[in-house]
Simulated scan of single mutants.
Amino acid sequence: MKLKVLVVDDEALARSRLRTLLGDCTAPAADVLGEAANAVQAMTALQREVFDLVLLDIHMPGADGVALARSIAAMAKPPAVVFVTAHAEHAVQAFEVDAVDYLTKPVRLERLQQALQKVERAAHAGQRPKDDLPEEILIIQDRGRTERVPLAEVLYLKAELKYITVRTRTRSYILDGSLSELEEKYVAQFMRIHRNALIARRAVRALEKHFDPEEGEGWAVRLNGIDELLAVSRRQLSAVREAIAT
């Protein structure tokens, strides 16, 4: 089955090149059923025709590709989005709007074919039951790389100086953000144990007496998967006890 594709780029030459490359893709194959030079033309095409995929440039006159991707995501049955752009610094934004892939110009046939395969796999995954919610992730930039860390793997989030340490069983990441915002967003999954720390509710193993050189006698929580103890403030102690008991 061929993927039905809408190509969105303000440069006619770029659209033509993508059309040629798509014609050479075989597993899966693709048909270009529409082209657009800006967001308005793209939305008009999307209202007229059902597409499986939108190949989308970021820098365009008027609304840019990221804004268009957000509009596409709000559709009742949105097509997959793959960004195609010369500007690699927008990779984080691409992941934040749930793009399936991010291609940099000039696009190579092999890389485009890989992106189509991701779209195909995502389409099959989309056939899951409606109550099976998509996996929540944190977008983390690390040494020039952009990584998607599943929230289900995170054991704790700890504010240190201007950054947040994101800890999984296997490693630590650095995230630029606000602990309060993360607490508000993921209140069902994480609980505050200290002014500078949130822990995954599912990961709590034990509450132990603990002596801290700075804060003296107190309590600390032990999490599944790591040996590190995390201090619990007196203010949060009863909430942690309750979490362990339930």
Rank of each mutant, 00 (worst) to 15 (best):
L112W: 07
R192F: 02
V204T: 03
A63C: 02
R108E: 15
E35K: 07
V7G: 06
I139H: 08
V187I: 05
L103K: 12
V166M: 07
D142F: 02
A67K: 07
S233H: 02
D227K: 12
G225L: 10
P79H: 06
R195S: 08
S233K: 03
E181D: 15
Q141V: 14
S178L: 05
V7M: 10
A36W: 02
P134N: 10
E215T: 04
E120A: 15
A88G: 13
Q114H: 13
L155K: 11
D31N: 14
A36I: 10
P106F: 05
V54A: 10
T104R: 03
A243T: 12
F190C: 02
D101G: 12
A39W: 03
T246V: 11
A99V: 07
I139E: 04
M60I: 05
H90M: 12
P213L: 00
T165D: 08
E49Y: 01
R202S: 11
A67S: 13
A63N: 04
V81D: 07
S233D: 05
V66G: 04
I58W: 03
D9H: 04
I226G: 03
M60H: 02
Q113M: 12
I72Q: 01
L103P: 10
G23S: 10
D132Y: 04
Q189V: 00
L18E: 08
R202L: 01
L56Q: 02
Q47A: 14
T168F: 08
D24L: 15
N38S: 12
V8P: 03
S238H: 06
V119S: 09
D227V: 02
K162Y: 04
D101N: 15
D101H: 15
E215F: 05
Q114P: 01
L223Q: 08
E181V: 08
V40Q: 09
V119Y: 07
D52H: 10
K4A: 13
